[in-house]
């Protein structure tokens, strides 16, 4: 009998970080199944993940972070998991916080965000452009959700089955980076969202917010949020009970 909990790890060229990460996840949640979504890596990410005891869903081509986690949601929906925990493969997220995320989810929330910025959270300092964006879009999401959201871009999350299905089936789910716009949509659809403090470490390597990306990011987010706000609430896919 499985726990009904699936940990999904989107991974692109993470053969070096996975061997350290997978045992820590197994230690934190021994009963959970682990699915690594290899987003078309050209290194040995898939083999390393399998060797570490994880199941591997491998995209034959690189699709993007959002598409990778959506593959995880689709897998979870097909297999009837009651909860999905989502953690990045690069070691930025501390698996020790997985238990807290799951416990909070079990208190009756649909989405629990692991925040770097809530009091109690440690060890993370983002580049200023990213910080500014997160601050602004966090404020917009907080206003719409009626609840303070400090870290709308976090990839460290716990999701209940009905939200997982909503994401798995939604044409709105972006293939690149789900962000405050998705959060706002989720809030408008009536899902219950909360945040808890988690431990996060600064990422090494190139940021996704370098070059012209910040300009594209801000434009996309503004447009997307405006569109989401003008839409009528999307059909709720929640299950009874």
């Amino acid at each position: 009998m499985q726990s009904g909990v699936l940990v999904i790890i989107p991974a692109f060229h993470e053969a070096e970080s996975l061997p350290a990460l997978l045992p820590r996840i197994a230690a934190a949640l021994p009963d959970a199944d682990v699915l690594v979504i290899d987003d078309g890596s050209r290194d040995s990410t898939s083999a390393v993940a399998r060797a570490g005891g994880a199941r591997v869903a491998r995209h034959p081509i690189n699709l993007g972070y959002g598409a990778a986690i959506q593959t995880g949601y689709r897998y979870a929906t097909r297999h009837g998991y009651r909860a999905v925990l989502q953690i990045d493969a690069d070691g930025q997220h501390d698996p020790a916080s997985l238990g807290d995320l799951l416990r909070t989810l079990d208190e009756g929330w649909d989405l629990v965000l692991g925040s770097r910025f809530l009091s109690g959270a440690r060890s993370y300092r983002a580049p200023w452009v990213r910080r500014l964006g997160m601050r602004f879009f966090g404020a917009v999401s907080s206003a719409v959700l009626g609840r303070r959201i400090t870290d709308p871009t976090t990839g460290f999350q716990a999701l209940g089955a009905s939200l997982v299905r909503y994401y798995a089936e939604g044409r709105f789910f972006p293939p690149d980076y789900p962000d405050a716009d998705v959060l706002i949509r989720v809030g408008k659809a009536g899902f219950r969202v909360t945040e808890i403090p988690v431990t996060m470490y600064e990422k090494d390597g190139p940021s996704m917010h370098s070059g012209l990306r910040p300009i594209y990011y801000v434009m996309k987010m503004v447009l997307s949020i405006l569109l989401v706000l003008t839409l009528s609430p999307p059909a709720r896919l929640r299950e009874k009970g």
Partner: peptide
């Protein structure tokens, strides 16, 4: 459509335990 196809392939390979083709 391409994203859906690739995701479907990934899920099927995860279920069968085989390695996905490398395009």
């Amino acid at each position: 459509q391409m994203k859906d196809l690739a995701q479907q392939i990934a899920i099927i390979t995860a279920e069968s335990g085989s390695a996905a083709p490398e395009v």
